[in-house]
Design a protein around this nucleic acid. Sequence first.
DNA 1: CGGTATCCTGTACGATACTG
DNA 2: CAGTATCGTACAGGATACCG
Lengths: 126, 126
Amino acid sequence: MCEMEINGLKMPESMDEKTRSQLCPVVYAVSKLGGKWKLIVVHNLIEGPKRFGELRRAIPDITQRMLTLTLRELEEDGIVNREVFEVVPPHVEYSLTEIGQGLETVMSSLGDWGRSNFQQRRNAVA
Amino acid sequence: MCEMEINGLKMPESMDEKTRSQLCPVVYAVSKLGGKWKLIVVHNLIEGPKRFGELRRAIPDITQRMLTLTLRELEEDGIVNREVFEVVPPHVEYSLTEIGQGLETVMSSLGDWGRSNFQQRRNAVA
DNA sequence: CGGTATCCTGTACGATACTG
DNA sequence: CAGTATCGTACAGGATACCG
């Protein structure tokens, strides 16, 4: 289940359970996308590039600080691109890299699940 | 983008941005699956039911306490089923509910992304 | 075996103020 | 506009011990 190939080689049999589980692609993905805001920010960039302020308005509960930190980490992980236009007033645009766009199917399946789960549970109450 | 229907009705136009964003299915999904361990646990139940101890061994870094708490929350959210066999020694089995199984596509796309991202970034270094 | 019950801690996150 | 810089804290999560 948790196979992850490294340079075309499967994980060696000798590898212990712990290291093994840390190389699981799902575990790996979760480690990159964990935290309170990362998926939300990615979600908001799926449609196309957005400026800092646009993201801020689209995610009302996020603080300026957390938006900055989240974007920096996503950038470091090669998920988000940051483009600075040297004008006054400053203009900075964030967009998904190729890797980031690879998350589109994740986001849409997550959205599908959210919708149907929401429905089912509402119906259960009603 | 963040449409979520309630009893077949779209969100009213009058709803403000904040409430609106909280009804986004992606935001909803993330709120149910956030935290350090939920997706990992779900991932481990995709293949089929597992006992408490099996989960514990499959996720070496999780503490007994966090596994319990995580399973309880997943149960409360209708994602995981808990079945107790009244024998000695105790035997408890956890499995995915129908809602939980709906996460299969999420998990597999997440796994796909993890794999390819992992590859791309390794190749970039090499 | 599959848990609770306590106690404790780190850090992820928030609030506020300031700036190029 | 798009950020840092500081400071403060709640709470997610860990360690340990004990139990039916």
